[in-house]
């Protein structure tokens, strides 16, 4: 055998099709889409919440009666909870190595995101439609 470097690489150094997770760059991409969406959404929400922070309940209700604000709040909830699910998922996948606990944790955050996000969205809708 010659001493020339043998190329040990196989064509598998390149990911084929959608890769091992069968979803390609979907996770990465949605994390970016929600991140970009949150830049304007959260700036509006932060300023609004700062204005509402010192006010009374009537001021909060009045703010959510504005359809534009209610839509911005709902879109913020969607982007925040989706982004949060993707982020927490990566943290769990990085640090939880026992397969059973990992799957249980992933299920738990998925359920928690839908429950808390759904409740937050319902609160906005109640404030918007409420008397």
């Amino acid at each position: 055998m010659s001493n020339a470097k043998v190329n040990m690489r196989t064509p598998l150094k390149k990911v084929r099709h959608l890769g091992a997770a069968k979803e390609g760059v979907q996770h990465w991409w949605i994390q970016r889409v929600t991140a970009i969406a949150m830049i304007p959404l959260l700036l509006i929400m932060v300023v609004s919440v700062l204005k509402l922070a010192g006010g009374d309940h009537a001021a909060v209700v009045a703010a959510f009666k504005n359809p534009l604000f209610a839509v911005i709040a709902l879109l913020s909830i969607l982007a925040v909870f989706w982004h949060m699910k993707l982020g927490l998922q990566v943290v769990i996948e990085d640090y939880v190595h026992s397969e059973g606990l990992k799957i249980a944790s992933l299920l738990a955050i998925t359920f928690a995101i839908f429950i808390v996000g759904g409740a937050a969205a319902l609160s906005v809708l109640k404030l918007f439609f409420g008397a």
Binding site: F64, G87, V116, A119, S123, V124, L127, G130
Partner: peptide
């Protein structure tokens, strides 16, 4: 922030 979001959701719920 994920933990804080729970607080924010509670604030919204209380307002509702």
């Amino acid at each position: 922030l994920a933990a804080g979001t729970l607080l924010l959701a509670a604030w919204l719920g209380a307002a509702a």
